[in-house]
Amino acid sequence: MIDLITSLLAITMRAGASLVYATVGEIYTERSGILNLGLEGMMLMGAVSSFAVAYYTGSLVLAVLMAMLVGGLLALTHAFLTVTMRANQVVSGLSITLFGSGLASFLGQRLGPAENSHYLVGLVGPKFTPIAVPGLSQLPLVGPIFNQDPLTYILYLLVPAAWFYLYKTRAGLELRAVGENPRTADAMGVDVVKVRYLYTTIGGMLTGLGGAHLSLAYTPGWSENITGGRGWIVIALVIFAMWNPARAVLGALLFGGINAVQFRLQAAGTNIPAAYLNMLPYLTTIVVLVAMTWWEALSKRIGAPAALGKPYMREEK
C-alpha cells in the first residue's frame, strides 16, 4: 500500500510540474488585470521550440531559455494587442492559442532532420532526468519529492518566491493594485501599462517553461498536441488557486494526481474503458469550475482581480 501511494505521488509530481509553471505564470498575468487565454498555444510553442533546440544543440539550458523566449514573445504580442491596442482580451488570447497550436504543429513537421522527413516526431533528444537526493529519496511516502528532475526542483523555490513577491514586496503590492483597480494604482504613481506588459510577459515565459517540461522531462520528445489541453486546464487551476501562487500547487497536485490514478488503473488492467479514464482530468476541470464559482458566490470577498479583462485608459471619463 505504501509503495502504491509512493509511486502515485511520484507520477503526480511529474505530471503536475508543467501545470504549476503555467498556473503561477497565469496567476501573475491575471493579477495585473490581463486574461491570457493563449496558454495552450504558448505551452505548445514552448514544447516544440525547446525540444528542437535541445535536439540540435544538445544543451538543455539553451532549450529552456528558448521556451521562455518563445512563450514571452507570444505573451508580449498579447500585451501589445490588449494593453496598447485595447483589443478584446478573450479574442486576442484565443488567437494566440490558435496561432501557437498551428505554428507548433507546423514546426514539428519542418524542423526535423532530413532523414526523418523533417519531422520532429519520433526523435530522441536530450532530456531532464530525475536526480535523487541521497537518503531523502529513499524515505517512504515522501521519497518521490526528493527524486525529481531539475525543473521540478526549481519549482520548490519558485512557488514560495512567487508567493512572497506577490504579498510581501512593494512590486507585488503594485501588481495586485493594478489588477484590482488600475485607476487607483495610476493615481498613486504606478505605471499601469508597464506593470501589465511586464507580468503578462513573465506569465508567458513561465508558461513556455511549462511546455518545455513536457517535451524535455515528462514525455520527452515531440508529439502533436503534447499538451493535451493542459493550457485550458490551467485556466481552471488559476480559479481553483484563487489567484494565489501558493495554492497553485494544490490544483496541480489534484490534476497530476488524477492523471496518476488514471495511469495506474489502466496499467492494472481495469474494466473501465480507457476513453472514460482519459476524460477524467477534463471532467474534473468542469466540476472544479462549477464548484468554485458556486462557492465564490456564497463566500464574500474571494474572487478574480476586480479589473481582470478590463482595458484601462487614463483620460477616459
Binding site: 512593494r170 503590492l173 503594485e174 495586485r176 493594485a177 484590482e180 483597480n181 485607476r183 487607483t184 494604482a185 493615481a187 498613486m188 504613481g189 504606478v190 470577498r301 476586480a306
Partner: peptide
C-alpha cells in the same frame, strides 16, 4: 482611489518608492 481588497497600510504605501 483605494483598493478595497487591501489594508489601509498597503493602500497608503502603494506606489511609494
Amino acid at each position: 482611489m483605494l483598493v478595497p481588497t487591501m489594508t489601509v497600510a498597503e493602500n497608503i504605501i502603494l506606489g511609494l518608492r
